[in-house]
Design a protein around this nucleic acid. Structure first.
Length: 360
DNA sequence: TGCCAATGAATCTAAGGTGG
DNA sequence: CCACCTTAGATTCATTGGCA
């Protein structure tokens, strides 16, 4: 099936080239590369104005910036080894779909591409082709950020299933999201090859396939995202452990749902720092939260705080919290993401936590 | 600076398919 | 047929830019 799609696209590329240059359609050669360690998926020989061009095609199903970078890296490597010297071979990435970001990246590095929508780019000495097609309706509806809002909840639920197979319905349930949202999000994860699928129609199942890549991308997104607002308080004469206890007691009495976050959560799952004195948490807001803060004797301050609170509008985000000992704690995944946004030694701590608890 | 309109993204409901 | 997945259209939500 992959082979089918590839051949069709390579054929379309050849036609497109002939169309633009008004010349002969290029000949498609079989990709026998003597001694080449990386075998291309196809090779096109084109000639126009007496110049001969040789297009070395790499095929992929879909290309996002991450894939593009990988392709660029491979391409540079093969240049460095000087194997192709004299041939003037031009790399062309051919894929069913190539995201706009990936296309920018490839153009910047003057690596050619061609996708199923007809977007085309070829650059070489004496030759510059660029074709931009309007977005197809399908593409304009495509999911481009899976790391925020309800979709992040879906991701979180997927993570929780580890390597087990699951259905859309189940994930929607666990994430607290409509089946539609779960479905489109999972489709997006599948395109990125972070999850794999088996079966089709109602019997379709998926599972996490590449936790490392998923976590890398999530981390990159999280690091660049704007941290949520945190209110700072001071609680008099409260040592770290004691403050946590009092917080939990007060939450019990006032009915506020909360979880330890950031460094506090990290310390619970994979102790790393000594002498932590500031408690970080997130909690559902409103009147009950005010009551709870009053009960522990928290006083808003600018400097010298020992309690940081991120106020939540709804408690969707507390869906994955864990009871550890006698405290509610963000799960390791959430703690990891929190740490990426915290200052100081939090980044190191994030690495430690990932190695200890996330295994990817 | 702050408000409001317009635009676009995110999510849901409901309808359309499909395998067992 | 039933139970589930997917897709289309409607709705809500957030962000951006214009203007006072």
């Amino acid at each position: 099936m992959n082979g089918q799609a590839k051949d069709v696209l390579v054929e379309k590329l050849a036609e497109a080239l002939a169309d633009i240059t008004g010349g002969e359609p290029p000949t498609v050669c079989s990709p026998e590369e003597p001694g080449g360690q990386h075998r291309p998926d196809a090779v096109l020989e084109a000639s126009l104005d007496g110049q001969r061009y040789r297009l070395v095609v790499d095929f992929k199903q879909s290309v996002f910036p991450r894939d593009a970078r990988e392709a660029l890296w491979r391409h540079r490597n093969s240049l460095n080894q000087g194997g192709m010297a004299g041939h003037e071979a031009m790399p062309v990435l051919v894929a069913e779909s190539i995201s706009p970001g990936a296309r920018d990246l490839l153009r910047k590095e003057r690596v050619g591409y061609f996708d199923g929508d007809g977007n085309l780019f070829i650059a070489a000495r004496g030759l510059y082709l660029r074709l931009d097609k309007p977005e197809s309706r399908k593409q304009s509806r495509a999911v481009n950020n899976v790391f925020s809002g309800q979709r992040a909840q879906v991701l979180h639920a997927v993570w929780g299933r580890e390597r087990d197979w699951f259905g859309v319905h189940e994930i929607a349930e666990r994430a607290g999201v409509s089946p539609a949202t779960a479905s489109v999000t999972l489709a997006a994860l599948e395109r990125r090859e972070w999850v794999e699928a088996r079966g089709s129609g109602p019997s379709k199942e998926r599972r996490l396939a590449n936790p490392g890549a998923l976590l890398d991308s999530w981390a990159a997104y999280q690091s660049s995202a704007k941290p949520k607002a945190v209110r700072h308080y001071y609680v008099r004469s409260a040592a770290y452990a004691d403050l946590q206890r009092r917080l939990d007691d007060a939450s019990e009495r006032t009915g506020v749902r909360y979880e330890l976050a950031g460094i506090s959560a990290g310390q619970v799952h994979a102790p790393y720092l000594s002498g932590v004195s500031q408690v970080a948490c997130r909690a559902t807001g409103g009147k009950p939260l005010q009551a709870m803060l009053e009960e522990v004797g928290a006083r808003p301050v600018r400097e010298g705080w020992n309690l940081g609170v991120q106020e939540l509008r709804a408690d969707d985000q507390l869906r994955f919290r864990q009871r550890v000992g006698d405290l509610w704690v963000a799960d390791p995944l959430q703690a990891y993401l929190d740490l990426l946004q915290s200052g100081g030694r939090a980044k190191e701590m994030a690495q430690h936590l990932r190695a200890e608890k996330l295994g990817a």
